[in-house]
Design a protein around this nucleic acid. Structure first.
Length: 291
DNA sequence: TATGCGTGGAC
DNA sequence: TGTCCAAGCAT
């Protein structure tokens, strides 16, 4: 242990306060952890839980999912949002089945090659599923480090090399400890060091927090991008895909037309869904989830 | 590197 | 009410 990082208080706090999440149980498999990580991208835990359980019951292995049409993954995705993730998870299942002997790879670089798996998810799976030592830098960890070490309320809008270096420098040497540290810092960010109204009174490292010691100065950087939604192509895509998810089979075009009045935007959104592989235009003019 | 990509809960 | 935010990725 070569840092001044308060590893022990954070690990202690985690031992006493961690949520009982099913993908953290001993029975969790690399596949179930990979599925949880894809689902959790930009999506709250409470909404992931029921869908993750359904998926694990139905597709306990990559081969089980790979044997089904990708449209079934899209349908079972429900309203989690960003449904391209369902497609990517299905593509993961196919790649794992066909290229990796049906086993989720444990190598970080190989994980990175999987669809929908970026720097964060590869590190998370390598760490949480295989106990390896990686800097796991998600929005929670970035926020905790920004406050604890940089003394600012929020991290930069886009991840910097300095943040990666900082996270790596704080990693305990022992892989098992590093993996525990990674999940503990994430949990601290999720439960205590939250974006709004952080619960500083409950923080195990408050007296070592640069932001707190600075008097918790408010964020003074550039305005953080607000996501508008109403009236966007995104909302339109969501409406169109919801029709297809709820239908037992292919639908006629008018069934799609009724959910969005602006025909120009509607056609653009539908074209986008087709281009993304989320919607299959049939020869008879109907539309379906992909097969 | 800036942008597009869903959805819904909290305040 | 509108705004902010939630375990990012691909292009």
């Amino acid at each position: 242990m070569s840092t001044e990082m308060p590893t022990e208080p954070v690990l202690q706090w985690y031992a006493e306060n961690a949520r009982d999440l099913p993908w953290r149980e001993p029975a969790a498999t690399p596949w179930s952890i990979l599925v949880s990580e894809l689902m959790l991208q930009q999506t709250p835990v409470v909404r992931v839980l029921p869908v993750w359980r359904e998926w694990m019951d139905r597709w306990p292995t990559p081969a089980a999912l790979a044997a089904e049409p990708s449209g079934e993954a899209v349908r079972a995705w429900g309203r989690l949002g960003y449904p391209r993730r369902a497609l990517r998870l299905h593509a993961c299942a196919v790649a794992i089945t066909e290229l990796h002997g049906g086993e989720v790879p444990d190598d970080h670089a190989v994980l990175l090659s999987l669809p929908g798996v970026g720097a964060y998810t590869a590190a998370a799976v390598a760490s949480f599923a295989f106990g390896q030592r990686h800097a796991v830098l998600d929005t929670n960890v970035r926020r905790v480090l920004a406050r604890l070490k940089s003394g600012v309320e929020h991290p930069p809008q886009t991840q910097t090399r300095a943040e990666v270096k900082l996270a790596e420098s704080l990693l305990p040497e022992e892989p098992a400890t590093a993996a525990l540290w990674a999940v503990a810092v994430m949990e601290l960010g999720a439960l205590v060091c939250t974006a709004r109204s952080p619960r500083c009174a409950d923080c195990p490292v408050l007296e070592r927090c640069a932001w707190y010691l600075n008097g918790k100065p408010p964020y003074d950087g550039p305005p953080r991008r607000g996501q508008t939604y109403a009236g966007t192509d995104r909302q339109c895509r969501g409406r169109l895909l919801a029709v297809l998810r709820q239908a037992p089979g292919p639908v006629e075009k008018p069934a799609l037309d009724v959910v969005w009045s602006d025909s120009v935007q509607r056609e653009r959104a539908l074209d986008g869904l087709v281009a993304d592989g989320l919607v299959d235009p049939l020869d008879d003019g109907r539309y379906a989830l992909p097969s």
